[in-house]
């Protein structure tokens, strides 16, 4: 045994080693993911800022920062930490605010309607983009049809907690973000480390589900949806207050997100 080509194709030796590390690692990952998905909804209910204290009851650095946060924000809405949190939070919060502004919603709807053609022109395959576009538009259509803003918000919450719809919204925003990066690749290439091209970066870090988001994703997603985000950074850094950044710089942010290392939640003033 051992020489290449000697093993007959398709037949895998039955005498597997007693412990296959790969399988153990993957099984553990699946288990963690399962626990997260069973205990944390895709998008949670509104909770008072003080609810954050529960996570940090013995941590003075964070407690000071929660206190600071509570002077600027009233509520937090948690999202499931599955690597899609930025896209899910951003998409949800942006649509939620538009439900109270009919005119802006119509503009947003128009932008969404035209977006598939733009993606196909950028080289995305029509039939793979289509499924996600159709669901994205279906969600927007359902919301548009509801006259009362509060009722529409309830429907938004239901749709974003239905995996089928919610993940489709995430995928489509990932595609729009990838499209934006590739459309302005000269600009964005300055922010990509290493040898990767913008298109490599999109295929490896933007389009796949569960890949976490960085500044570059946020700036491109904002550009794709024609809006801006304020990100409040809460970490173990010194100081009693949280750092904040408007992305893109100088914008008037419409969506507020709380960033704790590795995760985004939605904030409400």
């Amino acid at each position: 045994m051992g020489d290449e080509g000697e093993t007959p194709p398709g037949s895998i030796s039955e005498d597997e080693p007693q412990v296959n590390q790969d399988e153990l690692i993957l099984a553990q990952q699946r288990q963690i993911e399962k626990e997260i998905s069973e205990s944390i909804p895709l998008v949670g209910d509104l909770e008072p800022i003080s609810s954050l204290n529960n996570e940090y009851s013995t941590d003075p650095v964070y407690l000071d920062k929660v206190k600071d946060l509570s002077t600027k924000y009233q509520y937090v809405r948690r999202t499931r930490p599955d690597g899609n949190c930025f896209f899910r939070a951003f998409s949800y919060a942006n649509i939620e605010r538009l439900l109270e502004k009919k005119e802006e919603f119509s503009e947003f709807y128009k932008l969404a309607e035209d977006s598939k053609t733009a993606l196909v022109e950028l080289g995305f395959q029509q039939f793979t983009v289509e499924d996600f576009y159709d669901t994205y538009m279906e969600v927007l259509k359902r919301l548009r049809a509801i006259e009362d803003a509060d009722e529409a918000k309830k429907e938004l919450h239901t749709l974003f907690n239905t995996q089928g719809f919610s993940d489709y919204m995430v995928v489509y925003l990932r595609l729009l973000t990838s499209g934006q990066l590739q459309k302005d690749k000269d600009f964005y290439s300055c922010f990509i480390e290493g040898e990767r091209t913008v298109s490599d970066f999109c295929h490896q870090e933007v389009e796949p589900m569960y890949k976490e988001s960085d500044h570059i994703h946020i700036i491109a997603a904002c550009a794709a949806l024609c809006t801006g985000v304020k990100v409040i950074y809460m970490d173990r850094g010194t100081g009693k207050s949280c750092n904040e950044h408007d992305l893109p710089e100088g914008c008037t942010p419409t969506v507020h997100l709380l960033y704790r290392p590795g995760h985004y939640d939605i904030l409400y003033p």
Partner: peptide, 20 residues
């Protein structure tokens, strides 16, 4: 690999639902 397995990132880590 001689058993037919392929080491290609889009088949696992870099898979995207928009691939076909």
């Amino acid at each position: 690999y001689s058993n037919g397995h392929i080491c290609l990132s889009i088949l696992t880590d870099d898979w995207s639902p928009a691939l076909s």
